[in-house]
């Protein structure tokens, strides 16, 4: 894993428009509009938004599962959308993803070992036998799993928490620099969530860059260094986590914060700002140290 470093994943004015209908003749949906931010190894960036905010689409575009309609995504200086064949495979060796539903991420007819095998075949073909087993064991150890507990089993025999950790360790096998974690704990029980999050924190300390996509502000606040808040596909506020949460400026951010149910305080009266109104010429303005708000 790279220590800190200058390798950046940069999104610049990224837009995604979905079209329905045969040959694209139907209605359009602006899923993501003009999103610009970057992620570096050694930091966790939270992408926070409600459903329909486009946060999952951003993750998918970074992972090349969906092409952007406009704008550019560059990694280490190279445009990600031009990659194909060899280039794309190399990209996946440095940028990987983990998704929301652990039980959907595994092909149910195969044992879980297969996800490791696929990686070995594509990226580490020369690593075999005891060397391979050792690498695998270390990757599992990094996420707090014992090889004997999880290998040789089918997905349904393991818990959601174990499955998600397995997916993280699969990504680690390849020495990746950026991990896109899309709502990876929302389907896990409360008591296992925090352990998986702590793993991400540890990996960040060792140099991994993480894009943590979530709707849960408390989790974003717990884990991330920087936070990006999306509403209807546009960035409305972003900056260092501590600053944004201590002093939320955009009405949408404040509305979100006031709606989060807490264990120590009751909901107070709803704020009166209308968070749905979009300014006529929206632009991100700097309001503090690295703290931007759309106005």
């Amino acid at each position: 894993m790279l220590e800190g470093g200058s390798v950046t994943l940069r999104l610049e004015n990224v837009t995604k428009v979905f079209r329905t209908g045969t040959f694209g003749g139907g209605a359009t949906v602006n899923a993501v509009t003009g999103v610009t931010f970057d992620i570096r190894p050694g930091e966790i960036v939270s992408l926070i938004g409600e459903s329909g905010s486009g946060k999952t689409t951003v993750g998918r575009m970074i992972l090349r599962l969906t092409p952007p309609t406009a704008g550019s995504i560059t990694f280490d200086g190279r445009d990600v959308s031009t990659l194909g064949g060899r280039g794309l495979r190399d990209y996946y060796g440095r940028v990987q993803g983990v998704f929301q539903d652990p039980f959907s991420s595994y092909n149910p007819v195969f044992k879980v070992d297969r996800v490791f095998e696929m990686i070995r075949r594509a990226y580490l073909p020369t690593v075999t036998g005891s060397e391979w087993r050792e690498r695998r064991r270390r990757a599992l150890e990094d996420v707090g799993l014992e090889a004997a507990d999880v290998l040789g089993k089918y997905p349904h025999q393991l818990s959601g928490g174990q499955l998600q950790r397995l997916l993280i360790s699969r990504a680690l096998l390849m020495d990746i620099e950026i991990l896109v974690a899309d709502e990876i704990i929302s389907m896990l029980d409360a008591s296992t969530r925090i352990d998986v999050l702590n793993i991400l924190g540890d990996l960040r300390d060792r140099g991994l860059g993480v894009l943590f996509v979530t709707h849960d502000l408390a989790l974003g606040n717990y884990l991330s260094d920087r936070v990006v808040i999306l509403q209807h596909g546009r960035i409305v506020e972003m900056g260092p986590t501590a600053k944004v949460f201590a002093n939320p400026v955009h009405p949408y951010t404040r509305m979100l914060l006031s709606c989060v149910p807490q264990l120590t305080a009751k909901w107070d009266a709803t704020t009166n700002d209308d968070p749905r109104a979009v300014p006529t010429n929206p632009v991100l303005q700097l309001v503090g140290d690295d703290h931007y708000v759309e106005r």
Binding site: R89, S104, N107, A122
Partner: peptide
């Protein structure tokens, strides 16, 4: 998601159809 994961593991269209979807 397991189809997306196969793509992220560098598998091509034919492999994905034969090994992930058809079974």
């Amino acid at each position: 998601d397991f189809v997306s994961l196969a793509r992220l593991s560098g598998q091509g269209t034919a492999r994905v159809i034969l090994r992930e979807i058809a079974p």
